[in-house]
Every structure is written in C-alpha cells, then in structure tokens.
Amino acid sequence: MTKTSNATNYPLLANPQIQLHGPVDNFMYENFKNQLANAGGDGPLVVSITTLGGDPEMARAMGDSIRLLREYTGRETLFLGKVAVYSAGATFMSAFPADKRFLTHNSRLMIHERIMNSTVQLSGPLNTLAPVLLAKLNEIQDSIRIQDEGFEALVEGTQVTIEELKSKAPSNWYIEATEARARGLVLDII
C-alpha cells in the first residue's frame, strides 16, 4: 500500500535553507550560524534537523537566533524535523510556534528531562562545606527553571499540557509523527 503524501501542500519545505544533522553541539551551532548568514532575507526561512540530541544550551542558542530573526524582521520561520528529533532537537523545535512545525513521515520526537552528571567533593573546614552544597543546589534549581521554560514553549498552543509533559519526560517520552500531529505539537506531516 502506497502512502499518500500531502507534501505538495507545503512546497516551501522541499528545500530548507538551513539543514542540520548530527549531535547538537558547538560544531552544529557554527554550521547553523553560517547557513543562517547565507540564507538570504526574502520569504519564509525553513530549517530542517535530524538529531539524536546533544547540548541543550546550543539548542537554546540556535532557537534564540530564530526567535530574534522573527521578532526583528517579521520573517516567517518553519521547522522541519526529519527522522529523529530527540532531546536537544526538541529543545530547538520549541523555538518555533506549534503551527510552524512539521515532521516527515515516520519521524519521532523524544523529550526528556535535562541530565546532570556531577560529583560534589566535600573537603575542608565545616564552615566552608555548606556554600559548596548550596552552589550545587542553586545550579540544579536554575537548570530546572530553564528546562521548564523550554517545556512550556514546546507545549504552547498544543493539546499537550505542561503537567503531562513533566510526568512523561523523566522516562524519555517518544512521540511518533502521527501522535505529534494529533496532539498539535506539529502542524502536519509531509
């Protein structure tokens, strides 16, 4: 049985001006900035990504560039997720309004909580230990605030509640393209 495609409804998505793939890291960020600089300033900007995840701060930095472009120029920005939009890829996706997001057939999103690997070394006079622990606690609490801001942006304008997302994120929530469309996380599938 042949799948019918509605890709012809969205001809702009056929040739994204920015195409990203691989881990979300400094290299992807540099690649993104170079492609953005060469994308020209006319018409909608289409950004595609395929990623198994990476650095959420690099994803947020790319997302801020997209947000600023929209706010300063009024240029329409469209997101196209291909195959896998995991972890930091979903963080990047959250920079686009839900009605400007698309996935290709058989793509999946994966959303999870931020992960921290850290060891706290306590050594020294007792009066010096509490500030070390407090600094780590502050880091954790601020990371949770940043994570929650991203979660709120991701579900804004969708049928997914922040409570549902927060309940599913700790165990890696995988969402197939059809469910993402049904829940309003993306506008459509091409």
Rank of each mutant, 00 (worst) to 15 (best):
V155D: 00
N172S: 07
G53L: 00
E71C: 04
N26H: 10
Q35N: 07
V160D: 00
L52N: 00
R67K: 15
Q17A: 15
R183P: 03
Q35M: 13
D99I: 04
P56D: 04
Y174C: 00
N26W: 07
A90V: 11
L122W: 11
F92S: 12
F102W: 05
G54E: 04
A153L: 08
L134R: 12
R181S: 02
K82L: 09
L13V: 03
G124T: 11
R67S: 14
L134D: 13
D25H: 04
E179Y: 03
G43W: 14
A95F: 02
Y174I: 09
L165W: 02
A177N: 02
G53I: 00
A95I: 07
N117D: 13
S94F: 11
Q35C: 06
T158Q: 04
A59P: 14
S171T: 14
W173I: 01
V155I: 05
I190V: 14
A39Y: 01
I49V: 12
L20P: 14
D64F: 04
N6I: 03
L78F: 00
G22C: 08
A135I: 03
S5H: 02
G54M: 09
E113H: 10
A130W: 10
Q121V: 15
L69W: 03
V160N: 01
A84S: 09
K100M: 04
K82R: 12
L165E: 01
T2S: 09
L154C: 03
S143M: 08
A135N: 12
D42E: 15
P23M: 11
N172H: 07
L36D: 01
N127D: 13
R108H: 09
N117Q: 09
N138Q: 07
P131Q: 08
L129P: 02
D142W: 03
S94M: 12
V83H: 09
E30T: 06
L185E: 04
L13E: 01
N127V: 09
S65Q: 13
H21W: 00
Y174W: 06
D188T: 02
S48W: 05
R183K: 08
D148N: 11
N138F: 02
I162K: 06
I175P: 05
D64V: 05
E139T: 11
L134M: 10
L137S: 07
G184R: 02
S123W: 03
F96G: 08
K33C: 15
G157S: 06
F79C: 10
